[in-house]
């Protein structure tokens, strides 16, 4: 049961985490995140880093698609811009890591602003197609601008190095990626406590009346594109430091679909949704792999089962769309509500 949560100031009522219980759970989460690297093996740390990168990118796409209602299938291409920017800066100038990541974000943002331009005129499927077209163009640039991108063979990235410490293992990268991702998620959460976030939601819900309420549509749609691709760019930069080689094939269209699926499965237009969606999309295929590995099967059977894994993954996504259209975050909210009311109403 939830008691003692009476709020006595507007500031308290507007805070992101407003109850003691929430603060308690946040502390538990912080301890878990701090302790995890010391308990987990290399494989789990690898997955944790990947999840952090995917959460950052999904949160960005969520700003654009979940909150502003502009469907984009260009998120992977924007990650590509970030990754190439970081790789090229690292290789040619050797500038500091955090600066590279920021630069990756900003260059991707510029790309996002250009791709966002048609969004004033086209919406929905049409916009999605326009963003696919942009991805194709970007892929072409990645593959053919040899001087910067190294063409089809791509760029090999040196390990990130901050203050003499080389971030060459998943264990070390964890300490770089997780704080960055947390900052990005908090930034997004803050955004939706202010006029900017409200303007995005207004454009999603009813763009014409948003305009009469004083929101210039083009400026805010572009802002949403810019922010979203900034997030993608930083995530792509982290990706570059993580996989250490960037090629034109690193960021295929299917990856954009992956992020869109993460936003939808998690729950569009909620901060928690993007986090849960990214975790789900990254971890479920791995979990299925593990489960198949545990089954007492011959090598042949395992080989046959591997496409079945993909099918099960797909079926899970469809299942979510049908049975929980508000996404994983809705399940979470239901659980919370249950405990808030317990034991008075089951």
């Amino acid at each position: 049961m939830r008691i003692g949560t009476a709020r006595s100031s507007y500031r308290h009522d507007e805070s992101l985490f407003d109850s003691r219980t929430q603060h308690g759970w946040l502390a538990v989460l912080a301890v878990a995140l701090l302790g995890f690297p010391f308990l987990a093996d290399e494989y789990w740390l690898y997955l944790a880093c990947l999840v952090a990168i995917n959460i950052a990118s999904t949160t960005g796409l969520n700003i654009l698609t979940g909150y502003t209602g502009l469907v984009s299938l260009g998120q992977a291409a924007f990650m590509g811009i970030g990754a190439y920017t970081v790789a090229a800066l690292e290789q040619k100038l050797g500038t500091p890591v955090l600066l590279n990541l920021l630069a990756g974000g900003f260059v991707a943002m510029l790309g996002g602003l250009v791709v966002g331009l048609p969004s004033l005129r086209v919406k929905g499927l049409y916009l999605a197609i326009a963003t696919i077209a942009a991805s194709v163009v970007l892929h072409f640039v990645f593959a053919n601008w040899h001087a910067v991108t190294g063409g089809h063979s791509g760029i090999t990235v040196a390990p990130a190095e901050i203050l003499g410490v080389s971030f060459d293992t998943s264990f070390r990268l964890y300490w770089l990626f997780v704080p960055i991702t947390i900052l990005m998620v908090l930034g997004a959460a803050n955004l939706f406590r202010t006029r900017i976030g409200r303007a995005f939601i207004a454009i999603r819900d009813r763009d014409i009346s948003a305009e009469v309420l004083g929101i210039p549509l083009l400026r805010y749609k572009l802002l949403s594109f810019g922010l979203s691709s900034f997030y993608a760019g930083v995530a792509g930069g982290m990706w570059a430091y993580f996989f250490r080689v960037v090629t034109p094939e690193s960021f295929p269209l299917i990856m954009s679909i992956f992020f869109l699926a993460a936003v939808i499965v998690g729950g569009m237009g909620t901060i928690l949704g993007a986090i849960l969606g990214a975790i789900f999309m990254t971890m479920v295929p791995e979990a299925l792999k593990l489960i198949v590995g545990w089954l007492p099967l011959s090598a042949d059977a395992t080989l046959i089962l591997s496409p079945v894994r993909t099918i099960v993954f797909g079926a899970l996504i469809v299942g979510f769309l049908v049975f929980e259209p508000l996404g994983l975050q809705e399940i979470w909210r239901r659980i919370r509500r249950f405990f808030h009311l317990w034991p008075f109403r089951a």
Binding site: G187, A188, N190, L191, R193, T194, R195, I196, L223, L227
Partner: peptide, 10 residues
Amino acid sequence: RTNVLDALFY
């Protein structure tokens, strides 16, 4: 008057 940077950091 809040701009994007203000908003992100609140």
